[in-house]
């Protein structure tokens, strides 16, 4: 579904990605692991069009997207839920959801999807007129995911959904991610600090180090890999 080949990218003079290649097959959850500054978020930014790669290509469902603007990539079916959630904090929960559906023209479908995400994330239903900035951290993360789903994506790019949340809340969020993948068939590319958690969900993982892919393997094998265990799983 998604194929990145030999991508390099930079922030000004700072090289952030060097020759990164990875593939995300349809219907699965793939995870990107690595320490801070390894290039995980940058990879997502390149895919969603926020950052233009200096070389290499990104293909989505057989079409090149690496020269496209984010607003046109969204309508192709990629939804990026960025680091730090980036909600519209001065707007209501409902307005955030409607903005998630901005590219869609089918009003009836949008209404049904609002209902659907509110069934998924019940707290959002009870707080639909509250300002997003006043929700708790866990609620905000649920809203970020719900908003991301409103565009009916085929591929969801999730950046650190566990950041700053309590363990119990994180569990809930990850159960939702799993459900979205299983029931709705949404493919997920997950960036996560908590490698153990990410590998329990994903079927395949890539490990990034200073902007390069250093290991890639099925989750089971990554969990058993000596180097990965020592560096990222901590046992």
């Amino acid at each position: 579904m998604l194929k990145i080949s030999g991508v390099s990218a930079a922030y000004g003079p700072v090289q952030a990605l060097s020759d990164v290649s990875l593939e995300v097959p349809a219907g699965v959850i793939v995870t990107l692991l690595g320490s801070n500054g390894a290039g995980k978020s940058t990879t997502l930014r390149v895919i969603s069009g926020l950052l233009r790669p200096t070389s290499g290509s990104v293909e989505f469902m057989g079409r090149r997207i690496d020269r496209r603007a984010p607003e046109s990539i969204v309508s192709m079916g990629i939804s990026h839920i960025p680091e730090g959630r980036q909600l519209f904090t001065d707007m209501t929960v409902m307005e955030n959801l409607m903005l998630g559906a901005y590219t869609r023209r089918d009003r009836g479908g949008v209404q049904r999807d609002v209902q659907r995400v509110m069934d998924y994330f019940q707290i959002l239903g009870t707080r639909r007129d509250a300002h997003a900035g006043l929700l708790s951290g866990g609620e905000q993360q649920q809203l970020a995911i719900a908003r991301g789903l409103m565009s009916r994506p085929r591929l969801l790019l999730l950046d650190e959904p566990s950041l700053g949340l309590a363990p119990l809340v994180i569990r809930g969020i990850f159960e939702h991610i799993q459900r979205i993948n299983k029931e709705d068939g949404v493919t997920v590319l997950l960036v996560e600090q908590d490698a153990m958690l990410a590998l329990s969900l994903a079927s395949y993982g890539y490990v990034l180090e200073t902007g390069r892919v250093v290991i890639s393997a099925a989750s089971g094998r990554l969990r058993e890999d000596e180097g990965v265990r020592r560096s990222y799983l901590g046992y």
Binding site: L50, S75, P82, D90, L99, S151
Partner: peptide, 13 residues
């Protein structure tokens, strides 16, 4: 409010 998030929603900022 948030131009970057707006672009991710598909808005032509």
């Amino acid at each position: 409010h948030n131009p970057v998030a707006s672009r991710l929603m598909g808005i032509r900022v």
